[in-house]
Design a protein around this nucleic acid. Structure first.
Lengths: 340, 340
DNA sequence: GTACGGAACCAAATCGATTTGGACAAGAGT
DNA sequence: ACTCTTGTCCAAATCGATTTGGTTCCGTAC
């Protein structure tokens, strides 16, 4: 009774029901033809034995596990204690998990499987979701090589030969932000970008430079690694405002940089938005609860996640479920940092 | 070349290296005795073939997948578009994922496997992490029955026969909150609790009732389902303040209820904290960014997650890695809603 | 010279399902 | 009477590893 009784297998069910394992398999997968009466009998015995098909064994044979992997690069570079504020990536992960469940999949959070120290289990999945791939992303290289289905949010800027990515339209978004600043009276806009070579940073900077060129202005760009957070923002602000020709507006591609820039700009005795206007490229608690609140871009991680998951499972299941509607580029949320 | 070349198997490696599959297996798992020269040769052929052990096949035989499952009950009951401010669970999930990776595991987010519509893959894991089990939790019943390792954060209030849970010390925390309100001059504290029968709600209410009894006061408790969020908080406020003997302080066990109570109390013309003091039981953006900011309990989801993961993988690996230090009960963050 | 023991390696069984390729029976068509 | 379907069902192969239970070869002790 108290023995460690292992779970019943398909053979146990077959024996008790007086059929073959094939028939049991078929009644559960609905694949073969099984007489209604037999099916019922098998179902009943299975239930009475407490049988559940073993997912791993099934996965071995049929090569489908029912798991999607979400590679969360940005989390890897941060300290293990997460920054406060549940922002883009965690919201993305939460929504992706719910969407995956809706389609009968589980969502596994993993580190980049191309890293040596990555758990072997990172490969135990049917498909990958990749947020913000970097230029010549080794993971995409590997997945393409092994023929593993995947979908990236944002594209690998250097790779032309794949099309399974969803477009967050960074260029369009950058244009909206710059026009907003223009409308608010800014005459000289600087850009504070991260250093990860992903399409978000590269696309935004390219769009910014094109926009500056069209106005006949020299671009004014400061780079700080994403991981530097608010202190990186403060340093960037010093870099920009120590100049002889400081900007009167700053577009920061991350919310934490924006918060840092805001702090330092005010420390330097400048008024926001009076002397300097600030926009954050990724809405987060930092931008919402700053003083004054910072105008920023809501990237809509929930929508992006749902679209990404739907597209990926459509490919995996070879179905054509409808993709949630809505613009995939972010939406600008105007706050006091750009109200003049 | 363009054929869908399947990944090399252990047999391929064995053939090319001129050894048996057993030897290949041993060189990778480090289990048997393999001569150093042979081991190197096998390693080299494996690398040149691009061989990686198949996680699923390994999992089938050895019964270990390298995956932890995190059951996020609260997310299930909510709409699929995540409400903002459920940051406890997302922060928990993010930290749990990072901790799992550190120990060589992946973290899978799943819905409760006892639900019929739950993905089959929910069972493809080595152990479960359960947040806030409810009374007579069916999942715990099932896991105990099948002998699947698990660990719960908070305990099943009705179950005595298991000890693999970590104690968030709800009673102690409740005492700290009530004492804080007492120190701030509150004379009559009401409680707004959720309706999930978990140890958080039950433990806090029991502690509250005991405290009221010790002061010779009638307890004043309003219940609203967790899912009602701010509107539930507003309704609870009406219930409490329509009374002839309204409280002068309210302790809400969720941050969203607290935000709703705050809104309605002020709508009714009362001053916070002048007339009514408010405390939220779970810190979130709602409490941080309310006007005035609401004093609340930081449950330290990052720490809890790391402790939970460490304990679970210690059991799975039969190791005794050190558990992160620190008090597991929440910490009170005093804000303006209780500053008199 | 025989027995014993350890080092290095291997063949085959195993994990628990799915899938392939029939087998068998009952009824229909000719 | 014979073939041909069609509907059910099954035995055995298969997925890719791990693990069991040896075998072979040498060196050493007696």
């Amino acid at each position: 009774m108290t023995e460690k009784r292992s779970r019943p297998t398909i053979a146990d069910v077959a024996r008790h029901a007086g059929v073959s394992t094939t028939t049991v398999s078929h009644t559960f997968s609905g694949k073969g033809v099984v007489a209604a009466a037999t099916r019922e009998r098998v179902r009943a015995t299975a239930k009475s034995l407490g049988y559940r098909p073993d997912v791993v064994a099934r996965g071995l044979r049929s090569n489908r596990l029912g798991i999607l992997a979400l590679v969360l690069r940005p989390l890897e570079t941060l300290d293990s204690s997460l920054p406060e504020g549940v922002d883009y990536f965690l919201r993305f992960a939460g929504s992706a998990a719910l969407a995956a469940m809706d389609f009968g999949y589980g969502l596994m959070l993993v580190s980049d499987p191309t890293r040596e120290e990555s758990p072997a289990a990172a490969l135990a999945c049917d498909g990958f979701l990749i947020t913000e791939p970097v230029t010549n992303d080794p993971l995409i290289e590997m997945l393409l090589g092994e023929g593993v289905p995947f979908l990236s949010v944002g594209r690998d800027p250097a790779r032309a030969a794949y099309d399974n990515w969803i477009d967050t339209d960074t260029e369009l978004m950058t244009g909206l932000v710059l026009r907003h600043l223009d409308d608010a009276g800014a005459t000289r806009v600087a850009l504070v970008a991260g250093t990860d070579p992903n399409s978000w940073n590269l696309g935004a900077e390219a769009a910014y430079r094109a926009w500056a060129a069209a106005r006949g202005q020299d671009p004014l760009v400061a780079h700080r690694p994403e991981t530097t957070g608010e202190s990186g923002g403060r340093a960037a602000a010093d870099e920009l405002f120590d100049r002889s020709d400081p900007p009167d507006a700053v577009y920061c591609l991350t919310g934490r940089h924006a918060a840092g820039v805001l702090t330092r700009v005010r420390q330097r005795g400048l008024d926001v938005p009076g002397d300097v206007q600030i926009v954050g490229g990724s809405d987060s608690e930092h931008t919402r609860s700053a003083t004054p609140p910072i105008t920023s871009v809501d990237l809509q991680p929930e929508l992006l996640a749902r679209v990404a998951v739907t597209k990926l499972v459509n490919r995996l299941d070879d179905l054509d479920r409808p993709v949630p509607p809505g613009k995939l580029h972010g939406r600008l949320i105007a706050r006091d940092s750009t109200r003049t």
